[in-house]
Simulated assay, not measured.
Amino acid sequence: MISTDDLMQLGLELAGWARIPSDCGIYYPGTAIKRLLVGLDIGPGDLLLARQMGFDAVLAHHFDGCEAVLTAWQLYRRHVELMMAMGVPHLAAEAAVDERVEELRLLAHTVNYNRTSGAARLLRMPFLNIHSPLDELGRRMMQEAVDDLLRTEPDVTVAEVAAHLNASLREFQLAPTRIAIRHGDPDAPARRVVVAHGALTNGGADVARTYYEHGVDTVIYIHIAPPEVRKLHRLGRGHLIITGHVASDSLGINAYLAEVERRGIEVVRLNGIVSPESEEPL
C-alpha cells in the first residue's frame, strides 16, 4: 500500500527535486492505496468512474480544474535554467520568457481552479496531480537519446535526429501522432540539439530564437502553436522538431508508473497515456 504523500515524494525523488513544484498538488489526501487510476487529464467524471470501479485514488498529470492552475505559471521560468545550461547568457534567457510569464500569470485569473479538485473532495476520493517532475523524466530520456546519437554520429541531419527519437522510445512508435520537423531544413546538419521540455509548456518562438542566437541549431518541443511557427519561418534560421504532446508526456509518466507498480500497486491508465505494453505500433 501507498499514500498520496508517497506518490508525490516518489515523483520528486525520480526527478531529483526537493520541493513540490507549483504545477503539482495533493487535493484530497489518502492512505492505504492499492488500486490507482491515472490519466493525462482528469475531470469530475473520471473521479466518479474511479469511485464506481473501486479505485483507491486518482492521479492526474495535468492540473486543469485544480488549485495548481493558479501558480503553475511560475514553472515557465524553468526555461531560463534549460537555456543557461546550453550556454545562453542569463539576461538573454530572462528576456526570452518575461513576456510569456506575464501572460500566463494574467491568464491564471480566468480559470476555474476548483472544478476537479472540488469534486474529489466532495466524493472523498484521494486525488493528486504530478506534472513537471514527470515531464523532467521525459525530457532526460529524449535528451539522452539525442546525445547518444550525436556522440557516435556528430554529422547527423535534423531528419535523422527525429528518426532516432522515434526508433529509441517506444511511446513514439505506439502513438498515432508522428514526430515532425515544423521549421528548418530536414536535410541540414542538426549540430547542437536541445530538448526544451518540462518547463510548464513550450517556449514558443522567443525561446527557440534565443537558442538559435546562442549556438543551439535544433530545438525540440513537444508541441507549439501555429502562430509561433510562423514567427520562426519569418526568422529564417534554426530547426524545430515537434515530438507530440501525448506521446512525449507518456515517456515520463510511464517511467514513474513503472516505479509505482514495482511497489505492488495496481495501475490503470486512461485519458490518453500511451501504454508501453501495447503489442503493435500504430
Rank of each mutant, 00 (worst) to 15 (best):
residue 87 G to Y: 11
residue 88 V to W: 03
residue 89 P to W: 01
residue 89 P to Q: 05
residue 90 H to W: 06
residue 91 L to D: 01
residue 91 L to M: 06
residue 93 A to W: 07
residue 93 A to F: 01
residue 93 A to Y: 00
residue 94 E to R: 13
residue 94 E to Q: 14
residue 95 A to Q: 03
residue 97 V to G: 15
residue 97 V to R: 13
residue 98 D to M: 14
residue 98 D to I: 14
residue 98 D to E: 15
residue 99 E to R: 06
residue 99 E to G: 12
residue 101 V to W: 07
residue 101 V to S: 11
residue 101 V to T: 10
residue 101 V to E: 10
residue 102 E to D: 14
residue 102 E to Q: 15
residue 102 E to S: 14
residue 102 E to L: 14
residue 102 E to P: 12
residue 102 E to M: 11
residue 103 E to D: 12
residue 103 E to F: 09
residue 104 L to R: 04
residue 104 L to W: 04
residue 105 R to T: 11
residue 105 R to Q: 11
residue 105 R to L: 04
residue 106 L to F: 07
residue 106 L to P: 04
residue 107 L to D: 11
residue 109 H to R: 12
residue 110 T to A: 15
residue 111 V to F: 13
residue 111 V to Y: 12
residue 111 V to P: 11
residue 111 V to T: 13
residue 112 N to L: 14
residue 112 N to W: 08
residue 112 N to M: 14
residue 113 Y to F: 05
residue 114 N to L: 11
residue 115 R to V: 10
residue 115 R to P: 13
residue 115 R to F: 13
residue 115 R to W: 11
residue 116 T to R: 00
residue 118 G to M: 08
residue 118 G to W: 08
residue 118 G to P: 02
residue 118 G to I: 02
residue 119 A to H: 06
residue 120 A to P: 05
residue 121 R to T: 03
residue 122 L to A: 13
residue 122 L to F: 11
residue 123 L to Q: 04
residue 123 L to W: 01
residue 124 R to Q: 13
residue 125 M to N: 07
residue 125 M to D: 07
residue 126 P to W: 07
residue 127 F to R: 02
residue 127 F to K: 00
residue 129 N to G: 09
residue 129 N to I: 09
residue 129 N to D: 09
residue 130 I to D: 01
residue 130 I to Q: 01
residue 130 I to V: 04
residue 130 I to F: 01
residue 130 I to R: 02
residue 130 I to M: 05
residue 131 H to S: 04
residue 131 H to W: 07
residue 131 H to K: 09
residue 131 H to D: 03
residue 132 S to M: 02
residue 132 S to T: 12
residue 133 P to W: 08
residue 133 P to K: 11
residue 133 P to M: 12
residue 134 L to S: 10
residue 135 D to N: 01
residue 136 E to S: 15
residue 137 L to C: 08
residue 138 G to I: 00
residue 138 G to Y: 05
residue 138 G to E: 06
residue 138 G to K: 00
residue 139 R to G: 03
residue 141 M to K: 09
residue 142 M to T: 00
residue 143 Q to C: 09
residue 143 Q to M: 11
residue 144 E to Y: 07
residue 144 E to D: 02
residue 145 A to H: 01
residue 145 A to R: 00
residue 146 V to D: 02
residue 147 D to N: 10
residue 148 D to M: 12
residue 148 D to V: 07
residue 148 D to S: 15
